[in-house]
């Protein structure tokens, strides 16, 4: 960082050979900011503007009516199940991939990333093909009066699917770069497997873990396409927050739709703030340890 900051403090006025002239610099910054303003900042601001356009009373009413509250509860429930499961998966996958050498490792890493490249609509559809009335398990489930599709379990499954890779893909490169020497030393000193994990590995990966959890949670609460396919849109029972936004919007209840949407936008902003804090924490660490490249 300091190596980059130093040459910039050269007296201005003369153009240095490895720098652009001031007007090129200003127009590039201007153009980049214009693009970001048009495509990022204006849409973000408009969510809050539209939400509050009709005043606080309408806003508060929209986010406290029973359907909205049940949508908030379902969204929190789905995330509360999906995130811990994917956390356990992420740690297990990263432990296997990063600490051991085995055949087919690259294939495994590619498979973990698979849900990212599948369209959300397809992610929902595949569960309908298994658990839906016409699906593989459909007749058996109907016989035993178990509902998965158009019910809460389907929403949870679809949420888990789309968020499978988040924590694993944060932890794998992090644990690979840390190597296995510290854990091996712990083995030599007689530590058990769980002791090694909780006393040696976990302190080393805690920020990466938190980072993955934050991103996983944001996607779990915001997923729309996959959940939309399996939900059935039953108000007050299988409606998550993003689906509730859609219903309100399609009923031309724009103020309420944007009020609920602003909750999700707020969640996104909190996610970004936490992400930035965690990033600065992880960046500090290697510098104080003196092993920055």
């Amino acid at each position: 960082m300091t190596a980059i900051a130093l040459p910039l403090s050269v007296p201005s006025g003369r153009v240095r050979p490895v720098e652009e002239s001031a007007w090129v610099r200003r127009s590039l910054i201007g153009l980049a900011l214009a693009f970001l303003t048009l495509f990022l900042f204006v849409p973000l601001i408009s969510v809050f503007y539209e939400a509050l356009k009709k005043g606080w009373d309408v806003y508060i009413a929209a986010i406290t009516e029973p359907d909205a509250v049940s949508a908030i509860q379902l969204t929190l429930t789905a995330a509360a199940i999906a995130v811990p499961l994917n956390l356990v998966f992420g740690v297990a996958a990263a432990w296997a991939v990063a600490k051991f050498e085995f055949r087919g490792k690259n294939l495994l890493v590619t498979l973990i990333d698979l849900p990212f490249s599948v369209s959300p609509v397809v992610s929902g559809l595949i569960y309908v093909l298994i658990f839906g009335l016409q699906g593989w398990l459909g007749p058996w489930l109907a016989e035993h009066d178990i509902k998965i599709i158009f019910a809460v379990p389907g929403i949870v499954l679809a949420t888990i699917f789309v968020t499978v890779p988040f924590i694993a893909r944060e932890l794998i490169p992090l644990m690979q770069s840390q190597g296995a020497e510290e854990e091996e030393a712990a083995v030599v000193l007689g530590a058990s497997g769980w002791q090694i994990f909780f006393r040696v590995t976990l302190p080393n990966i805690k920020w990466g873990l938190l980072y993955g959890v934050i991103l996983c949670n944001a996607r779990a609460m915001g997923e729309f396409g996959a959940v939309s396919v399996v939900s059935g849109h039953i108000r007050g029972s299988t409606n998550t927050l993003p689906l509730h936004v859609e219903i309100l919007y399609n009923e031309y209840n724009f103020a309420a739709a944007f009020a609920v949407a602003s909750l999700l936008a707020l969640l996104a902003l909190i996610t970004l703030a936490l992400k930035t804090i965690v990033e600065s924490k992880t960046r500090e660490k290697p510098e104080t340890a003196g092993i920055q490249e």
């Binding site: 915001g222 993003p242 689906l243 936004v245 949407a261 969640l267 996104a268 970004l272 992400k275």
Partner: peptide, 9 residues
């Protein structure tokens, strides 16, 4: 932001 903002929003 586009990673964090739900697509419906």
């Amino acid at each position: 932001l586009p990673f964090a903002l739900p697509t419906a929003v």
